[in-house]
Design a protein around this nucleic acid. Structure first.
Lengths: 324, 324
DNA sequence: ACTTATAAATAAGAAAAACTTAATTATAAG
DNA sequence: CTTATAATTAAGTTTTTCTTATTTATAAGT
């Protein structure tokens, strides 16, 4: 039942018929004219029909060719239309984003006004959530996710790298004593997200401090709440630079130890590949990268004072590739 | 601009979508399931879209897949319809034949009653002509042509071989004298068709007769007229067995010399390949071959008395591949 | 809970299709 | 009569597609 000829042969026929020339058809399709000649020859053999009269220096459709052409054209139109529609944006005036709640409220929303002011006609919708929303219901344009960049079935682009710092409220640190010692006495606030769990001990061993388990600890599930706890001076924690750099700059938080950990998870833009072709998404991505460039500059200013702990992140590499 | 995927990939998609299974699609298309899997994978890459959700033991279309499917189906319908139409018979109740006038009147028409009686609903039209009619105007179903079987752009099938005999009216021959001598005195009737020209000298040299050019001769352009002239005793001629065998059997003509020449031209059925698939054409061909079997049997009875002249027909081979 | 069975994915190599260049053919135009 | 053009043909190369064998994931059966 494989009675259908190949698309290439049909395309050759279509172009040759429209141009009334194998040569021009070949140019349009970026192949040699011999290729067209051969395709049409085999097409004619397969169909058992002569499609063209070969006159000396031009060709013309036979009756059968004329009869066939409209069906072929129609078929190609339908194919092309279907494929074009796939990439069409169902709602070009509306940009729907999925992000982590912490990133949304602490970083994205405060800046979004700037983007909205230059995109008068675009309404922006944010869908905050821990898990990655499905792109199947067609409403979601783009996700900003925190992970390793492996999102099966989706296309991802690195938005920015992140770094993890030990932080606490400035009032908890007495500058006359070594900070490391004081930290031992403070309650530890932990984030149980997979990428943030059990990071504190790495700081301690890096400093050669005995790994005495902390007695006081407060465990949260959302980085946002963790930051609020830090701001109110409830203890120390490992926190992401991206979420707290402004607080440090403003003196609302401090980084008591001159060390940091490169994050094993980074920020990615995630969507089906074709969503990245939507003009509104491209404009948003462009704006977003301007904003993250700003973070990167701040980090470049801030980081020289710190020493990286190159923790071999193998125990992250092995764990389930979970994502927030 | 080669943005279209291959037909195979689209066909794989179509069947997989309809069957909700790569395995079943593979069976329908007579390929392995791995082939379908790969085709769809590359299709998804090309389109930048996920077409199927892979659940464990079945698959389902994504939103994009659902959106694409109707366009693809429509395109395939159009293709299939166009190709089917090509082979459709525009007038199944009417059989139009093109043949040589001589063959039509002397052989075909007298027998056609037999065919027509078993084909009540088929009207038969004969278009007699020296040259091969064009198949472009869609009215012609089949041609019965006399030639070498090379009809560029058309399909041809050998219908029957033919043989050339020296013949004249019986009354012209006196059985008490050697026939060869008597023939020298009779007028020669010639057919100036390319395949019949200059055949008489071959008979003469075959018999070892001096090639004294005949003084009396009558030249005709149609074999039919030649036969009429022979019947009325106007002379001798080289004539086709197919056209005169019944006259010999009835004693209306005689073959005075026990020799014959295999014809360099034979009878062929000629048409665009797909015309041979039309039911009415197939029925006609079947009937026609029954009829020509009869001629062949008669020849097998008649020919043992004769000696073939294996004239090296090179001067036919080299001449223009003309056709009657 | 453990085995079995199913459907899809993947890898590697074989087979088929399509393309390229170069040479040939046929004929209109100069 | 020569030249130039467009198509065809031939031969060899590249690309695509397919097959077999293996792997993965999971639902179903024991």
């Amino acid at each position: 039942m494989t009675r259908l000829p190949s698309l290439k042969a049909l395309q050759a026929f279509r172009h040759a018929a429209e141009m009334k020339s194998f040569k021009l058809a070949a140019e349009q399709l970026y192949v040699s004219q011999a290729a067209i000649s051969q395709q049409i020859k085999t097409l004619e053999q397969q169909l058992g029909v002569t499609l063209f009269h070969r006159l000396t220096r031009d060709i013309e459709l036979t009756r059968e060719g004329q009869q066939l052409l409209p069906y072929i054209s129609k078929a190609f139109h339908s194919l092309e239309q279907g494929i074009d529609r796939l990439n069409d944006d169902p709602a070009p005036q509306r940009l729907t984003l999925s992000t982590l709640p912490s990133f949304a409220s602490r970083w994205l929303v405060p800046r979004l006004g700037n983007f909205q002011s230059q995109e008068e006609n675009l309404s922006i919708h944010i869908s905050p959530g821990i898990t990655l929303d499905s792109f199947d219901d067609s409403t979601l344009d783009l996700a900003i996710r925190f992970g390793k960049g492996d999102y099966p079935g989706l296309s991802s682009r690195l938005l920015m790298r992140d770094y993890i710092l030990p932080v606490c409220h400035p009032s908890l640190i007495n500058h006359n004593r070594p900070a490391a010692e004081q930290l031992k006495e403070l309650p530890l606030l932990t984030d149980d997200a997979p990428d943030m769990k059990d990071l504190w001990p790495l700081f301690e061993t890096a400093l050669g401090l005995p790994g005495t388990p902390k007695t006081h600890r407060l465990q949260v599930t959302d980085s946002n709440i963790l930051v609020e706890a830090l701001l109110s001076g409830q203890g120390v924690a490992a926190a992401r630079f991206s979420l707290i750099y402004e607080l440090i700059e403003r003196g609302q938080l401090t980084c008591p130890l001159p060390i940091y950990l490169p994050s094993s998870f980074d920020y990615y833009l995630v969507a089906p590949e074709h969503h990245f072709k939507r003009p509104k998404v491209q404009r948003f991505e462009h704006w977003l990268r301007q904003q993250t460039d700003d973070i990167r500059r701040r980090w470049e200013i801030f980081s020289p004072q710190l020493k990286p702990i190159h923790c071999v992140t193998e125990h992250y590499g092995e764990q389930q590739q979970s994502d927030q």
